[in-house]
């Protein structure tokens, strides 16, 4: 593998208050290769969003804090930058889109003004030039009426249109890395297909690497080159997408694959994983999946397994495989 664009090592993000220490992200490691799509999949509360917010240094404070780790992006450790230096990276070399674009878009600013703002901030272009480029960007994300859309407000757009406008904004400065947290979860399938198509073509055209966070294994299967499976704030399996889908090794990944309805199979009853996701305020001491794992042995409850490379490039956090 070429030198990774982004290297995340031992990332820990905790929410610390008097009552509790919530280990939202607890020692996460992964690489993103330039121009590739890394899919991060995991259940709610497994730390996906906090991982992505940590990469952007947008963890909600004052309780939320990155307590340890390295996030090396294009050779620089982002965690060592000043807030000012970091804001030059954000929206510029690194773009982000969220599940609900309404929370990220400013409701009182026209779409064109919001995209323009990014260009003026990072590219120091004139207002007129910013508007011109905004129209071009909107056209590139599939708005035939881009000239009109620049003058419309977010509430005038449908969910899919807003998400595409968000993508246009995130892509404005041609970032090297796009972080997309559940970008199509709120969208219908035909619009999801358009947005995924769009992300794929932007990746191919501009060589933008993408971190695609989703709970939808279908989207991962379709989009990802590499996959990270998260559980309880940790990476439990990471490998190429082919390896994860054709030869999953971690008991959690296997169980996950069997618990989803699939269109071309009739599953009378879904194989659900018993129990609940452990609370990040109170993780079990051994393997975090042990209370729900069908393969668990006594030893699993005692010792936390390390993430081990079982096959070249295929990492698994389980002592029994």
């Amino acid at each position: 593998m070429a030198e990774p664009l982004l290297k995340v090592r031992n990332l820990k993000t905790y929410f610390i208050s008097k009552e509790a220490q919530v280990k939202a992200v607890d020692g996460v490691d992964f690489d993103v290769a330039p121009g590739k799509v890394l899919g991060i999949v995991g259940e709610s509360g497994s730390g996906k969003s906090m991982t992505s917010l940590s990469l952007m240094r947008l963890v909600p404070g004052p309780q939320g804090r990155i307590v340890e780790g390295e996030v090396t992006f294009e050779g620089t450790d982002l965690l060592k930058l000043t807030e000012r230096q970091m804001s030059d990276v954000r929206g510029n070399r690194m773009g982000m889109i969220f599940q609900e674009p309404m929370t990220a878009l400013n409701p009182v600013l026209k779409i064109g003004e919001q995209i323009g703002e990014v260009l003026i901030r990072h590219r120091r272009v004139s207002k007129a030039e910013a508007k011109k480029q905004s129209i071009g960007l909107l056209r590139s994300v599939g708005f035939p009426r881009a000239e009109q859309i620049v003058d419309e407000y977010p509430h005038q757009l449908s969910g899919g249109m807003r998400q595409r406008a968000m993508i246009a904004m995130a892509m404005a400065c041609q970032p090297k890395l796009l972080i997309a947290d559940e970008p199509t979860t709120a969208l219908d399938v035909t619009i999801q297909a358009q947005v995924l198509d769009l992300m794929r073509s932007l990746k191919n055209k501009n060589g933008t690497a993408i971190i695609l966070i989703t709970h939808d294994l279908g989207v991962i299967a379709e989009m990802a080159d590499d996959v990270v499976v998260m559980y309880g704030g940790q990476v439990v399996e990471s490998a190429t997408a082919d390896a994860v889908f054709d030869d999953p090794l971690h008991p959690y990944t296997t169980a996950l694959m069997e618990s989803i309805p699939v269109i071309d199979q009739d599953r009378e009853r879904l194989a659900s994983i018993p129990g609940t996701v452990p609370s990040a305020a109170n993780f079990p001491s051994g393997c975090r999946f042990a209370p729900r794992c069908a393969m668990a042995q006594e030893s699993c409850h005692q010792r936390m397994p390390e993430l081990r490379e079982l096959k070249p490039g295929h990492y698994v956090r389980c002592d029994l495989v």
């Binding site: 995991g42 259940e43 709610s44 979860t185 709970h215 294994l217 169980a255 996950l256 618990s259 989803i260 309805p261 009853r269 879904l270 194989a271 659900s272 994983i273 609940t276 996701v277």
Partner: peptide
């Protein structure tokens, strides 16, 4: 169930 993750979605669907 759209916002639920798969293992829980399976539990809820079941």
């Amino acid at each position: 169930v759209s916002a639920l993750d798969v293992s829980i979605q399976a539990q809820v669907l079941n």
